Simulated assay, not measured.
Amino acid sequence: MSRFSLDKTLVQSFLVTLCRLLTGVKSFWHQVPQKDRPTIYYANHSSHLDGLVIWASLPRALRNQVHPVAAADYWQKTPLRRYLASRVFNAVLVERRRQAADAPDASESAAPRDPLAALADALEKGESLIIFPEGTRGDGDGVATFKSGLYHLARRMPEAQLVPVWLENMNRVLPKGSRLVVPIICTATFGAPIDTPDGDESKQDFLARAKTALEALAND
């Protein structure tokens, strides 16, 4: 094993252990996804720790094949964040549309970037993603309306499994606007895969169905 690989393995093990100590996270699986199919894990979002908790709850053999989807402007801001995103979490970084449009070198004549290209590329390689369809963090009191990205990605990659993941108590561990982690037991409940949208299902109907499947896990 190379020094670079050893470094990655040690940091991953440390972060998984730290995450479990801070959150006491317990994971529950309704059905383990098929390992030979790409999977889109989609979850409610109320804390900066949400992606880490899902990633740490996965079996070790799956972690290197699962990519959290995160905002490029945040994770490229410092060398430490860039290292964690690229080497440890294997994150797929995406540009936020508004910031990309407001960039100094933005041009009206420039062809718009496909925001789903990097995500589809990962799925086409047989790997998996962690996404938060609400788009931004909520306060944990409810699930906001899903953005359209989940629908378009599912239509583009119908062979991918769609697995809802309900995160409980994450807003209490790291409340919005706080930097203080409060040790509280959390849960990550992985539901059974839902069907991808067919040709007759509208975007609104699919997103409502996906949201309902996620919210149903809160009562388990």
Score class of each variant (00 low, 15 high):
G140Y: 06
A91T: 12
D205M: 11
M1K: 00
I54S: 09
D102K: 09
I40Q: 07
H152E: 06
R209D: 02
V182N: 00
A100R: 10
C186V: 14
K211W: 01
T39H: 04
R63D: 01
H152P: 11
L15F: 14
A103P: 02
E201N: 14
T39I: 15
S107E: 13
S13V: 05
K176W: 06
A117K: 08
E124M: 11
E95C: 05
R82F: 08
R98C: 02
R20T: 01
R20I: 02
S2E: 00
I184F: 04
Y42F: 15
A72Q: 15
K35G: 15
L49H: 01
V88E: 03
I194W: 12
A43N: 06
D102A: 13
L22Q: 06
A154Y: 07
L84R: 08
M157S: 08
P133R: 09
R97Q: 12
K211Y: 02
L84W: 08
A103I: 01
A188W: 07
P183T: 02
Y83M: 09
I130Y: 01
A154T: 02
Q99C: 07
G24K: 07
G149R: 05
S202D: 01
V165A: 04
H67Q: 08
S27C: 14
I54A: 12
A85S: 15
A210W: 13
E168M: 06
P175I: 02
K26N: 13
A70G: 14
L6V: 05
I185G: 12
T9Y: 06
P115G: 07
A213T: 03
G191W: 09
N169T: 07
L80R: 06
P115M: 07
F132N: 06
L62G: 01
N90C: 10
R81T: 02
A61W: 10
D50A: 12
G177C: 07
I184S: 00
R96K: 13
K203M: 15
R96H: 06
T187S: 15
I54K: 11
P193H: 10
N64E: 11
Q161M: 13
A85P: 14
G149W: 04
P104A: 09
P197R: 09
R82V: 06
T9A: 11
L52Q: 04
A160G: 14
R82M: 10
N171L: 02
T189A: 14
L10G: 03
D195V: 15
V11N: 01
A213F: 14
P59M: 08
F146A: 08
F4V: 08
I194F: 14
D139W: 04
K125L: 10
E127S: 11
T78V: 10
P38C: 06
W75R: 12
L180E: 03
L116M: 07
Q12D: 03
L207N: 05
T78M: 09
L15W: 09
N171M: 04
A117T: 01
D220F: 12
Q65I: 01
E168A: 10
A43I: 08
I40H: 09
A101N: 05
E159Y: 13
R137Y: 10
K8W: 01
T212W: 04
A43T: 12
E127C: 09
K125Q: 13
P104G: 08
D200A: 12
P197C: 14
